[in-house]
Amino acid sequence: MGSLLIPLNVCRKKNLYKPWECEHERHTYEKCQYDDYVRRMKELAKQKAAAAEDS
Score class of each variant (00 low, 15 high):
residue 42 K to C: 02
residue 53 E to G: 07
residue 50 A to W: 05
residue 18 K to G: 04
residue 27 H to A: 13
residue 41 M to P: 00
residue 6 I to H: 00
residue 19 P to Y: 09
residue 17 Y to T: 02
residue 25 E to M: 13
residue 31 K to M: 10
residue 37 Y to P: 02
residue 55 S to N: 14
residue 30 E to Q: 15
residue 7 P to S: 01
residue 7 P to Y: 00
residue 45 A to K: 04
residue 18 K to L: 10
residue 5 L to G: 07
residue 43 E to W: 11
residue 20 W to Y: 06
residue 34 Y to Q: 04
residue 32 C to L: 05
residue 8 L to P: 01
residue 26 R to C: 05
residue 21 E to I: 00
residue 20 W to I: 11
residue 1 M to C: 06
residue 11 C to I: 04
residue 34 Y to C: 00
residue 26 R to V: 04
residue 16 L to N: 12
residue 46 K to L: 04
residue 19 P to R: 06
residue 4 L to Q: 06
residue 23 E to L: 03
residue 6 I to M: 03
residue 16 L to Q: 10
residue 13 K to E: 05
residue 15 N to D: 07
residue 14 K to G: 04
residue 53 E to A: 11
residue 5 L to T: 03
residue 44 L to W: 11
residue 35 D to Y: 09
residue 11 C to D: 01
residue 33 Q to G: 14
residue 1 M to F: 12
residue 5 L to M: 09
residue 19 P to I: 12
residue 11 C to P: 04
residue 30 E to N: 15
residue 25 E to C: 12
residue 19 P to D: 10
residue 51 A to L: 13
residue 19 P to E: 11
residue 20 W to D: 01
residue 48 K to G: 01
residue 39 R to I: 03
residue 55 S to I: 06
residue 31 K to E: 07
residue 44 L to K: 14
residue 48 K to P: 00
residue 55 S to D: 12
residue 52 A to P: 00
residue 46 K to H: 09
